[in-house]
């Protein structure tokens, strides 16, 4: 593999705007990013790759918002990032058999903050007002065409994590009409009420409940899990899902999905090769592990509610990578 490790600060370098379409190109380390009306073109020292612009921008803003998440974020089968929790790899073809065999694969390691700044800079230049890559396609405009007015809203939103549990005094609060989050059209048929809470004086920060479904139904973002409750390093995230997960996620640890409403169809691939392993359809009440040796990509025909359970213990990525932990959650002796 052709690799570069860059420990010193790397700045993203912007070109002058294209005279026809108005977008800038960007050089970041060995990678060059260019967009036109329909596509993003990624160039690196020995290769080039093209990604449809909507898919690229949907992936990039989530990668920023997730803090590069756990493990691998494949924008598609060729290009993506891997989080090392302090550094981030950007790769092209590094997990693609054809690219590796022909020697055109490339991977460069950067400091996390540098990648974040670079991705934010690129996204801001390439996202026009009226197009929101965090929204479902039915709820936003098109990213296609020439540069217009840059989007004025926040590039990322909806990622603020609860510290103990949503709604507790001093913690992040659930979404509401007052916070500017109406019930999404896809959940308008549901009834939402609030739990009845009786609290004895002095226990206001201990006796607590809220309507989790109401909180999810008000999400104005998709495929964007955010922390709702945390005990030790056990993290519960919830998210509303519609259309397709705009990345292929290869986790560096096991995670679990619990389908709360509706259904999601998951394509499962081998993490290293990308070869298909098959398909899982999860419906309301279904629980399924996503092992540490796969890539997965979800498709939600109707907006649905998904719960994700993660183990945030530091260093787990290395234990799975070196084989200290098996890449699936229920070991043989437990069956």
């Amino acid at each position: 593999m052709n690799t570069e490790v860059t420990r010193e600060k790397v700045l993203v370098i912007a070109s002058e705007p294209d005279p026809v379409l108005g977008y800038r190109s960007f050089q970041f380390g060995g990678f060059k990013f260019t967009r036109d009306a329909y596509f993003v073109h990624v160039d690196w020292p020995k290769g080039t790759h093209t990604i449809e612009v909507d898919r690229f921008l949907r992936a990039m803003v989530r990668d920023i918002g997730w803090g590069f998440f756990y493990g691998w974020i494949f924008f598609d089968d060729v290009f993506g990032t891997q989080n090392h929790y302090g550094t981030v790899d950007i790769y092209a073809g590094a997990y693609s058999k054809g690219h590796k065999e022909t020697g055109v694969d490339y991977l460069e390691t950067f400091n996390t903050d540098d990648v974040r700044v670079a991705f934010e800079t690129i996204s801001k230049d390439w996202i026009n007002e009226g197009y929101d890559p965090l929204s479902a396609p039915l709820e936003t405009g098109s990213p296609l065409g020439a540069k217009q007015q840059e989007a004025s809203g926040p590039l990322i939103r909806g990622f603020e994590p609860a510290r103990r549990m949503l709604g507790l005094p001093g913690d992040v609060q659930p979404r509401s009409d007052e916070s500017g989050h109406p019930i999404n059209r896809a959940f308008a048929d549901m009834e939402f009420d609030h739990p009845d809470i009786e609290v004895e004086p002095g226990f206001e920060d201990q006796v607590h409940a809220f309507n989790l479904f109401d909180h999810i139904a008000r999400a104005d973002v998709t495929w964007n899990p955010s922390f709702t409750s945390i005990t030790q390093a056990c993290i519960c995230c919830v998210t509303s899902e519609e259309h397709m997960l705009p990345v292929i996620h290869g986790n560096d640890r096991n995670e679990w999905f619990i389908q709360l409403t509706d259904e999601i169809h998951w394509n499962i691939q081998d993490k290293d090769t990308g070869n298909p392993r098959g398909r899982i359809v999860m419906k309301s009440g279904d629980v399924c592990a996503m092992p540490a040796d796969i890539r997965h990509q979800g498709y939600s025909p109707k907006r649905s509610m998904l719960m994700v359970l993660e183990n945030g213990t530091p260093g787990l990525d290395e234990k799975y990578a070196n084989g200290e932990l098996e890449p699936f959650p229920i070991t043989a002796s437990r069956w």
């Binding site: 899982i280 419906k283 009440g285 592990a289 890449p327 229920i330 043989a332 069956w335």
Partner: peptide
Amino acid sequence: YDKGTIDLNDDLKHYAFSNIF
């Protein structure tokens, strides 16, 4: 409840697919 499906060329024990209802 309408349970989903799991169709994989892999050991299904690695996925521990169940339905809470």
